[in-house]
Design a protein around this nucleic acid. Structure first.
Lengths: 301, 301
DNA sequence: AATTATTATTTCATAATATGCAATAAACTT
DNA sequence: AAGTTTATTGCATATTATGAAATAATAATT
């Protein structure tokens, strides 16, 4: 009931102004057309078509319904076409945008593996923390670390959560005492990650309580590695993905600050331009990348 | 296959990231959800969802498909709602726009009959030959005589063809001889129907041949009745709907000119604003009007 | 490491639905 | 008035959908 095929029958009858002509066009029996229309009308509780045995015309409801439904049917077909895979050949150029620090750690091996699986592909990799406009058409795929996406206009695919933690050097923390609440951070030097501005908003939560503060009074950078280096040198507290500071936490050059307070969850996410048709090579790389990321322990502590 | 219900199942699974949660939400068995998704994937020839027994996520194709299909499903539901009739009470104000001469001849009786059938309705009737913008929201319904509509942006419903004919007074034609081709009309006074300009384009066809000429060198008016009066007075040739000149043809005050040459067909058409929801009173009046028009011989000669 | 719990899938018998063919009724044409 | 085209309906048959229970797979827990 109410499937797209039925709508196509209705639109064809409306256009041809004939049940039998529609049946011929759609290679079905007149009986099926009758039943399809009758079913649609029963479902809507409204008569859509006025029929005598010699003439068929739309009712007002039918005219309104046809006008509204026709573009939907076309768009539905287009959506199916955009996703359907016919040939099965994965080849061609894949233009990928990825963040710098994550890309340098994860992508060399991933790209190597992918290329050996699909030798007919070429990869153009743009490493930048700047959130390039995926709608510009310059990329087939953008890998980003961001808060969980809820966009309506862009198409995205969540890969895995990226846990972050507050860190500082032990030396830096020695001098400061009584760091028990996020509010205490305001007395310290908070190293902010920021593309252009000076500040970053940190939201920390523990059980039900949530605290928000503005970091970045002393220093900000658009490079996570830079912030990490400064934190190691005892310049202040930074909020960074765990994969960036894993090594430092292990060797003790950095330690966690307020470990009970959870920062907002970030997600490794794939963003796509609004493809007319999703290229197979992009789908293949995406699926490979998700598997690659989730088959190794990393990104998590 | 590919009915809207299946798409809703897919979108629910994608949102819940769980087959069983979707099944609970939609009051169906997990088995049905599995089969719905499997069927959709088979139809598209693409995997849409990645599932382990503990986690469900979208593939790239799935993300693209979900993003494109979700607004369509919502729009489809809205279209159904716009047309569905629940209460069945026909009442309220119906704001109708209609052309002057046709309205004066047809509507008095039609409105009277409709009001006696549906006493709870009120009718506001605006008679004007000016093509009021139906999109402005000032009217629920516009009755127009125009060439067969092919609009995409407006919603219309064809009621019946409105035959036209070339006419002139016998006295006027007496003086002119050898009127055999449309081209000969250029030597005569052609009375043009025009809203504001001076001219009207007449297209006449006979068998395969078509002739186009510009009428209106001497006189134009936006009133069919005015043109008729002038033609009766022997002022020239006019191209008018037959229902306007029926009486004159019968009593001989006007006669047909070039009766073998058919002017472009006009249609009596209903136009609607892009309703969020088609009001029952509008649908009822439209259906009544079509029946009223087609149950009487008129408009045709 | 073994157990437990949850989840997606499959199997199978049964119920529901769709389909085509032929017959019927209605409306326009000749 | 007869003939033709058209929409609809009845009926027997084939196809498909459905739910319950069994199965397989994966996390979480002990």
């Amino acid at each position: 009931m109410s499937d797209v095929a039925t709508l196509k029958v209705f639109l064809t009858v409306a256009e041809e102004q004939s049940f039998s002509a529609a049946a011929r066009l759609l290679s079905m029996t007149p009986a099926s057309v009758t039943r399809a229309i009758a079913g649609l009308e029963a479902e809507l509780g409204v008569q859509l078509l006025l029929r005598t045995t010699r003439k068929v015309s739309l009712t007002s409801a039918g005219a309104v319904y046809a006008a509204r439904v026709k573009p939907l049917v076309l768009a539905f077909d287009a959506a199916s076409e955009a996703v359907r895979e016919e040939d099965g050949i994965t080849s061609g150029l894949i233009r990928i945008s990825a963040p710098l620090s994550m890309g340098l750690r994860l992508l060399p091996d991933a790209v190597r593996q992918f290329r050996s699986l699909h030798p007919a592909t070429h990869i153009s990799l743009n490493l930048s923390d700047h959130f390039v406009d995926i709608l510009s058409g310059a990329f087939d795929l953008a890998i980003r670390i961001s808060t969980a996406p809820t966009d309506k206009s862009t198409i995205w695919r969540k890969i895995c959560p990226v846990p972050r933690c507050l860190i500082a050097s032990p030396k830096y923390l020695e001098k400061r005492t009584k760091l028990q609440m996020p509010d205490d951070l305001s007395k310290l030097a908070c190293l902010a990650y920021a593309e252009s501005g000076l500040t970053e908003t940190w939201t920390l939560s523990k059980d039900q309580s949530t605290r928000t503060l503005v970091a970045g009074s002393t220093f900000s950078s658009n490079s996570g590695d830079m912030l990490r280096a400064l934190a190691v040198d005892g310049e202040g507290v930074a909020l960074l993905p765990e994969f960036l500071v894993e090594e430092n936490l292990r060797n003790g050059s950095l330690i966690r600050v307020l470990p009970d307070w959870q920062p907002t969850e970030l997600w490794l996410t794939l963003y796509y331009p609004p493809y007319e048709k999703l290229p197979l090579r992009v789908a293949t790389f995406s699926d490979f990348f998700e598997k690659y990321v989730n088959d190794r322990p990393p990104l998590t502590s």
